[in-house]
Write a protein that binds this DNA or RNA. Structure first.
Length: 419
RNA sequence: GGGAGAGUGUCCCGAGCGGCAAAGGGGGCGGACUGUAAAUCCGCUGGCUACGCCUUCGUAGGUUCGAGUCCUACCUCUCCCA
């Protein structure tokens, strides 16, 4: 929020790569970062079994923090998720059961290890969980020790609350408490680990600042807030949503190939921004790549896909995805690494219609949809458009490597394999 | 507890004098153009054993030849008052 040049490597990097949306006190924070090991945390909700690309941005901030000599803390919201954050939501989310939250937590954890080094060393990352202290709180004690520092008048003015009220949507008491708990987390982490910075997405600003405030009233050292911009694509869509759903980070929820494709299909106008945010390439390399014009920029998109995928899934997996893509798109060759679905030989012998085949392959949700796609010219069998919706798959369709290639549009392919 | 209002195509918003598979958007998917981009244009957007059949308008009943539309009860949500 200021244009002064920070001195610390940490802040310089964050600013240069476009991670900063708001910061409570750049100069003050810069000083702390220069002085020595900076401890910062980001909280993560456990509302889904995997994080998605939206959370990648905060994770990258922690990554850079560690790289520049700081100590990152990932805070799992084991406790706060039981309450539910109203920020940025129109309606209250369904209450999640404790069991669901626990299982989500376990499944989310593993992702952090890809981006951060955990351990007991000075700049090793730390994984914490606010369940540890929040679930132990005693209501009356909490109200007396912490609750008295919150002004309802001020809370009513916070966006997360105000928007609900203005739109005449319900805001339950439990959600209203969320920011108090998050604020308390910050204080707790300060006391436990000397954490003085909380980062997060821009929608977290209110919650984070509430933490600074609580800290001051409860006698912590000066705390700092830093938020990253809300990520949208150049054409305004929310980042991380595709037709199939969210772009998950867990490989069991989104295949590596699809993850690679997600980045490969970025809009031109996003390439530079994404390279800065989601890869660790040096900035001069980023500048070179994003200067490419016209079709040339596809090279930059491939680099983006490679780098982003390598960070999450490893270099080898990224290369494999790139190779599959190269074969299918650039050579038009059948890549055996495409997703494969098996069918019983007998089923084919008994007569398997194309419509059913597409449904089996999961390319089409219903035969009706398959029918419509055929009318629109969207379905292909071994790269040839299908025109007859009553066509039955025959032996010759499996002539190439014993598999039939089914496609919807240009980008979605599945190999059908008889067994 | 009292009063006022609302629940529509399982993505969202949203029209709907008793004839409705249900207007219109958004989103999405497919096609054309391109560069696996954007913008633009076109088509599609309940299911199926498909010129027919089945299931949809909060839930359950009722009135009607016929109900998203009328009546009754119930459920859920919102607002106002207490």
């Amino acid at each position: 929020m200021t244009d002064q040049q920070p001195q610390s490597e940490f802040l310089r990097t964050l600013f240069a790569r476009g991670f900063v949306h708001q910061c409570s006190d750049v100069a003050g924070l810069d000083e702390k970062a220069l002085a020595g090991e900076l401890v910062a945390y980001i909280g993560f909700d456990c509302t889904a079994p995997s994080l998605h690309v939206g959370s990648l941005l905060p994770i990258m901030m922690l990554h850079w923090l560690q790289k520049t000599g700081g100590k990152p803390i990932t805070l799992m919201g084991g406790g706060t998720t039981r309450v539910g954050d109203p920020s940025g939501k129109d309606e209250s989310r369904k209450m999640l059961t404790v069991a669901t939250i626990e299982s989500n937590k376990d499944s989310i954890r593993q992702v952090f290890e890809k981006f951060l080094t955990f351990g007991d060393g000075k700049t090793d990352a730390l994984m914490s969980d606010n369940e540890e202290w929040l679930c132990r709180l005693n209501y009356i004690d909490f109200l007396r020790d912490v609750g008295r520092h919150f002004s309802v008048n001020r809370m009513m003015a916070m966006d997360s609350v105000k928007l609900r009220l203005e739109r005449e949507h319900e805001l339950s008491f439990i959600e209203f408490n969320y920011m108090c708990l998050q604020a308390y987390d910050f204080v707790e982490l300060n006391q436990r680990h000397g954490c003085i910075l909380q980062m997060g997405g821009s929608d977290q600003w209110g919650n984070i600042v509430t933490g600074l405030d609580l800290g001051r009233r409860m006698g912590t050292p000066q705390l700092y807030a830093l938020t990253s911009p809300l990520l949208t694509t150049a054409s305004g869509a929310k980042m991380g949503k595709t037709a199939a759903g969210a772009v998950w980070l867990n490989a069991d929820m989104l295949p590596v190939y699809d993850y690679w494709q997600y980045w490969r299909n970025s809009e031109d106008a996003d390439v530079e921004r994404f390279l800065k945010l989601f890869t660790t390439l040096p900035l001069d390399e980023v500048a070179r790549l994003s200067a490419l014009q016209g079709a040339e920029i596809n090279e930059a998109k491939k680099v983006l896909a490679n780098e982003a995928t390598a960070l999450l899934h490893g270099r080898a997996a990224a290369q494999a995805a790139a190779e599959t893509a190269r074969k299918t798109f650039e050579e038009g060759v059948l890549a055996e690494s495409l997703p494969t679905v098996t069918v019983a030989e007998a089923e084919i012998a008994a007569g398997l219609g194309v419509l059913t085949a597409f449904v089996k392959a999961g390319l089409t949700p219903s035969t009706g949809e398959a029918r419509r796609q055929i009318k629109g010219g969207g379905l292909k069998l071994n790269d040839a458009a299908i025109t007859d919706e009553r066509y039955m798959l025959a032996a010759k369709d499996f002539a190439r490597d014993g598999v039939a290639k089914l496609s919807v549009g240009k980008k979605k392919h599945v190999l059908l394999k008889p067994v």
